[in-house]
Design a binder for these strands. Structure first.
Lengths: 210, 210
DNA sequence: TTTAAATTAAAACGCATGTTTAAAATATGC
DNA sequence: GCATATTTTAAACATGCGTTTTAATTTAAA
């Protein structure tokens, strides 16, 4: 018989939901502990600081995503030829695997990533880059193989645009989905966003320069 | 002989610089008034609130950009045929015109826009959408003409990706330009970002679906 | 059951924020 | 040049934040 949900997990879950919706800075520990129905001080007791809590929330996803993503890259890397699209398709399965962490995991994670990335000068940026630095470099290398005509500088910027488009799609996703539903009378599931995103990104990266 | 810079303008200029660099929420009135070398209370005296100050900062750019942008659209709209690229090129001149507001105006404005857009649930989002709602709809319509094969829903999402890529390129621009300079040994001017962005966006929008 | 450790709880601390107040200083109009 | 209006100033206010403290309580071990 499963032990009742521990305080630590209650905090993590409540924090994750609030962070993904409102961002890190905009979510107070008092909101989190109220939502989790635990005492305010328990955050600092179990995690030490808000900073550490944020990283703990991110860690649960990174631990699943990173190995899966690196495995996909490992598979593609030795091949002689592949397309930009092939590279981006590497993200499909690993992102999808985040559903194991939680229902809606892929969307939640991308939202968190977006807020982390938007936190320009904070510790989050550094933390994220520590965990994504290697992925970035591998991604950059793979995209260069798929697109040898592009200069490294061009590719660098396009990768950045890719990041921006991906991350923003999630951060402003909820509000936008409302508008989309209102204007187009269709409800758009969150995982369909990734399906719509990948062709766009590949098209952007493959575009002729100037 | 020009009157010495008024307190109101000193506040606007200092606020603009700090907002563009650190975002709205992360910039305090005390930072602004210290930088502007005016009294703290003068912000509330001249503008009423921080909220109103932010909008005043944005307004100086919107007043220049919007008419220019609508003029470009007016010119393109009656034409029978045009490409996605033609549509995005409409932004070149109006953005460039922001140099009249200030040196580096285009970059500053896009940074501000990025922070406004990232401010998910705040008043800024509403304010921005009030001023950009019409532009969005015209842009959507023009892109649909340029790309009749894309469904309205697809186009909606792609426009959103476009926004994300554009806005993020500026928000994380400074930090990124450092990295770019370090890794590629070249300094990249801010307006070159727009030149790199437009082909990427057009390529993404023009990409085949699925 | 007793003792020690781990956890929860309530309250306060120190600090930074946007805003307001009320007096002093300055500029304006007659 | 005086009276009035405008602007600047310094100080305080109210609020919310992350964090710390100290005591009560629960859990676990002996």
């Amino acid at each position: 018989m499963a032990k009742r949900e521990t305080t630590k997990d209650k905090i993590l879950n409540a924090a994750e939901a609030l962070f993904a919706e409102h961002g890190f800075e905009q979510t107070s520990l008092r909101q989190i502990t109220a939502e989790a129905d635990v005492n305010l001080a328990s955050v600092n007791y179990h995690f030490g600081s808000k900073k550490a809590l944020i990283q703990a929330v991110m860690a649960r996803y990174l631990e699943v995503l990173m190995p899966a993503l690196n495995a996909e890259f490992d598979q593609l890397e030795p091949q002689a030829q592949f397309t930009t699209r092939d590279v981006f398709d590497c993200f499909r399965e690993p992102l999808n695997a985040l559903k194991k962490v939680r229902k809606g995991g892929p969307t939640i994670f991308l939202s968190l990533l977006g807020f982390a990335y938007a936190d320009i000068q904070g510790h989050l940026r550094r933390y994220t880059m520590e965990h994504f630095g290697e992925v970035m470099h591998r991604l950059l290398a793979l995209l260069h193989v798929a697109n040898p005509n592009l200069s490294p500088a061009d590719m660098f910027w396009r990768l950045h645009f890719v990041l921006g488009a991906s991350v923003f799609a999630q951060v402003s996703g909820p509000a936008l989905r409302e508008i989309a539903a209102a204007d187009f009378g269709e409800s758009i599931a969150a995982d369909q966003v990734v399906d719509r995103l990948i062709p766009f990104l590949a098209g952007g990266v493959d575009a002729p320069t100037a």
